[in-house]
Design a protein around this nucleic acid. Structure first.
Length: 354
DNA sequence: AACCCGTGGAA
DNA sequence: TTTCCAAGGGT
């Protein structure tokens, strides 16, 4: 690692340009109003592979429900999942909840402060550990996320891009480059500035080089190839929407997914339709729902509640849920979408019943 | 090391 | 309409 004393004037100028730009252009995001490690941690976990716009709303509700590490640790897992419902990657919520309980049980409720200690928590990888340590405690560790990787590859050019030998950049080389650029006096701001640049200027496609504060340091001026896309698969699936009672007492029939299922374990969804299919007259909604690289073409049948006995489901996994209680149930995103579009849940109803 | 896990908005 | 992909981590 180089010291600031041996640093070239070029890197010093890059830092100043980037931090200056960040000071002027940083978005006012809720989690940037504090350096509290618990708050920063929650935001970083939510932001894993998830867009800022999607996180903002969830973050506010989550922090109201679980304002402190202790509140999170004391909560039932189902309550945590219910708050996470719709955000995706539910294992993040389970691991963060487990980590909160570990911190209370093993560290007396005191959050680990260094990146190395944070790294030991479930759900905290290299990125999240560095982000929390640098933002909350000023530790001089660089973050390398998707944004930073792209920015570094463009700044440094082919020399870094081919450092892996197999046509891919080496993880170690990326980290070394990030460490070299990092402003060790303001690591939290610098790391966020790099990510902000990648998210708003140094875009994957159509990078806005004309607005880039460090374009004079950039060896590629935006050139960067993206790899081949993964092939999307398609699957047909069908569910049943069943209600009973009317008005405030209305209930919807839901099924709890098994704890051992790889996708969305323990989450609640509409029961699957019988295999033989159902008459077309029963179709109330068709939607497409994409999960990773699979397009699910979904058919929703509405049936009278008396038909419940025709459904096959593991004993005890079916349950009538009152409308008022839906907010406390960890629904899958697809089920949430269907209930909104059929106006059973409040929200936008685009594509709903004709 | 490649693959899996969710979602919705942009292009 | 379909595709692409975003502040990753675990296995």
């Amino acid at each position: 690692m180089q010291t600031d004393k041996g640093m070239s004037a070029d890197v010093v100028e890059l830092r100043a340009a980037l931090l200056g730009w960040y000071g002027e252009n940083a978005r006012d995001l809720p989690w940037r109003r504090t350096r509290d490690a618990y708050v920063v941690w929650v935001s970083e976990v939510m932001l894993q592979q998830t867009r800022v716009a999607a996180v903002v709303e969830y973050f506010g509700r989550f922090m109201r429900e679980f304002p402190t590490l202790e509140a999170l640790a004391e909560a039932e897992e189902e309550r945590v999942l219910a708050q996470w419902s719709g955000l995706g990657y539910y294992r993040r919520a389970r691991m963060m909840h487990k980590a909160a309980r570990m911190i209370v049980a093993e560290f007396g409720g005191r959050m680990p402060e260094t990146a190395a200690e944070l790294r030991a928590l479930p759900g905290v990888g290299e990125y999240t550990a560095a982000a929390v340590a640098s933002i909350s405690h000023g530790e001089a560790v660089p973050v390398v996320d998707g944004n930073v990787e792209r920015v570094l590859l463009r700044l440094c050019g082919p020399q870094l891009a081919e450092a892996g030998g197999n046509g891919k950049p080496a993880v170690g080389a990326l980290r070394t480059a990030a460490q070299r650029f990092l402003d060790s006096q303001r690591p939290g701001e610098f790391n966020q500035a790099m990510m902000e640049l990648g998210a708003t200027v140094c875009l994957p496609r159509n990078p806005q080089c004309g607005e880039c504060p460090v374009r004079t340091h950039c060896s590629t001026q935006g050139e960067h190839e993206t790899g081949p896309a993964k092939q999307m698969r398609s699957r047909q699936v069908a569910y049943v929407l069943m209600q009973r009672n009317w008005g405030p007492k209305t209930e919807v029939l839901l099924r709890r997914r098994g704890e051992d299922e790889s996708q969305m374990p323990g989450m609640w969804e509409l029961p699957a339709a019988p295999e033989g299919g159902l008459p077309d007259e029963s179709v109330v909604l068709t939607v497409r729902h994409a999960i990773t690289n699979t397009n699910y073409y979904v058919t929703i049948y509405e049936l009278p509640w008396e038909e419940k006995r025709t459904l096959k489901a593991p004993r005890g996994s079916l349950q009538w849920v009152k409308l008022r209680e839906l907010g406390e149930v960890p629904l899958t995103g697809l089920t949430r979408k269907v209930l909104k579009r059929t106006k059973i849940l409040p929200g936008t109803a685009k594509g709903a019943l004709a």
